[in-house]
């Protein structure tokens, strides 16, 4: 009977699609797991206290990544410190104050585009813009990352501002509150979660960035002080990873760094999840 064969065909088709989807899920999961385990197995045994707590020395042929760890934290801190007020401020201005809708759309579009540009281009621009004037240094690197992450923070904040109900603003204006008071007391508290999410996203990107820093922040492995040392060149973990693996053939150290970066990324994602959950809970109140 034609009717029956049709329904059987359909069933086979359904089953086939299901198998294909399962397969793709399986491949994805396997790849992630493989990568994770491979890096951990090759990296973790090489993580020693000496590696974490010393600077490299050519005399004793010792390799230590303390300066690289510190540089990573410096750059992270410095970039976030600068990009946060800039990005949040820009977002507030655009969403709450600006009235030229066309200009607004243009800026949003530009920001969207900027976040898709390969980071090596930011490195090139950062080199011309910052390193040429202040020298290759952590500050130049951080400023480059500021430009790179500005759109991220701005867009995340803007999206979050959109979720603050208009009725809150009306309520506050109706009581005679001025613009800034409305923004500060009613709008901003409602978008803290977006700002934090943006921060975490940016932190992840900064942590993993190497291309832009190769150009701008340099390769030095000496322990620097904060904030004076920001005028000196320094390698971050990702840059150090590149140098040790590609130029010195120290794959043990490279994998150790990779494992550390992996831990940091997982930690950041974990933090993002916690923050998100906490805010969702508060919102559903």
């Amino acid at each position: 009977m034609p009717h029956q064969s049709l329904s059987r065909k359909r069933k086979n088709y359904e089953a086939l699609m299901k198998v294909l989807m399962l397969l793709s899920v399986g491949i994805t999961a396997a790849l992630v797991l493989f990568l994770l385990i491979y890096v951990l197995v090759k990296g973790v045994p090489n993580i020693t206290w000496e590696l974490l707590s010393t600077s490299p020395s050519y005399l004793t042929e010792r390799i230590g990544i303390l300066p690289d760890i510190l540089n990573t934290l410096y750059i992270l801190l410095l970039s976030l410190l600068i990009v946060l007020p800039l990005g949040v401020g820009a977002a507030i201005y655009l969403s709450e104050y600006a009235s030229n809708k066309k200009l607004l759309a243009l800026i949003e579009y530009a920001a969207e585009t900027l976040s898709g540009i390969p980071s090596i281009i930011y490195g090139l621009v950062g080199m011309l813009l910052f390193s040429n004037s202040m020298g290759t240094c952590l500050m130049a690197g951080a400023l480059t990352l500021v430009i790179m992450n500005l759109p991220t923070i701005m867009r995340a904040t803007q999206e979050s501002l959109k979720t603050v109900p208009q009725s809150y603003r009306e309520g506050a204006f109706g009581l005679g509150a001025g613009k800034w008071r409305v923004v500060r007391t009613v709008v901003l508290p409602g978008c803290v979660d977006g700002v934090i999410t943006g921060c975490i996203l940016a932190a992840g990107r900064i942590l993993g960035e190497s291309a832009a820093l190769l150009f701008t922040a340099g390769f030095a492995h000496t322990v620097l002080s904060f904030p004076l040392g920001m005028k000196s060149p320094g390698a971050t973990l990702t840059v150090a990873l590149y140098v040790y693996a590609k130029e010195q053939g120290e794959f043990g150290v490279a994998f150790a760094i990779a494992a550390i970066l992996m831990f940091m990324t997982i930690l950041i994602n974990f933090a993002a999840t916690i923050v998100q959950n906490r805010f969702e809970k508060r919102k559903s109140l």
């Binding site: 109900p165 009725s167 809150y168 009306e170 309520g171 506050a172 204006f173 109706g174 009581l175 005679g176 509150a177 001025g178 009613v186 508290p189 409602g190 109140l285």
Partner: peptide
């Protein structure tokens, strides 16, 4: 702002602040 202090408003949908 002063005008709105003198002439207050209650909206259709209750809108207490969070």
């Amino acid at each position: 702002n002063n005008l709105r202090k003198e002439i207050g408003m209650v909206f259709q949908k209750p809108n207490p602040f969070p």
